[in-house]
């Protein structure tokens, strides 16, 4: 059988990879891709805690499905923002969007 630690370490690794992507990538779409990796890492943790705890308590799976809908909403609004910015500024590179930078 697989111990819980394997899932937790895998999720921590996937979260860190996503964090690196958010901090380092220049393209705004790539940053959103990395956010998806982080949300998936959290979901692995939620489902693993459901399975390794009391399986009759469904909170882990319910929270995972709510993370699904939040991720769908985040992607829809995020990509709409990226497309809107691209129309106005003709760029999606995050460091060129410095209008609010003092």
């Amino acid at each position: 059988m697989i111990p819980l630690s394997w899932y937790l370490i895998l999720a921590a690794g996937l979260f860190s990879i996503g964090l690196f992507g958010v901090l380092a990538r220049r393209n705004a779409v790539a940053i959103l891709l990395s956010v998806e990796l982080m949300l998936n890492a959290v979901n692995i943790n939620l489902v693993a805690f459901w399975r390794y705890g009391d399986v009759s308590l469904m909170a882990g799976q319910v929270f995972a499905s709510i993370v699904f809908s939040v991720a769908a909403a985040e992607v829809a609004v995020g990509l709409a923002l990226v497309i809107s910015v691209y129309r106005r500024r003709n760029t999606v590179v995050a460091e060129e969007l410095d209008l609010l930078k003092w």
Binding site: L4, S5, S16, F20, V22, Y52
Partner: peptide, 27 residues
């Protein structure tokens, strides 16, 4: 960013392995 990611992973791994239920088996 790479440093932050490695530090986050190290911190998470350290916190998790000090938790008592870390190597729990599924019932």
């Amino acid at each position: 960013g790479a440093l932050m990611a490695v530090l986050t992973f190290a911190g998470l791994a350290y916190l998790l392995q000090s938790w008592s239920g870390f190597s729990k088996q599924a019932s």
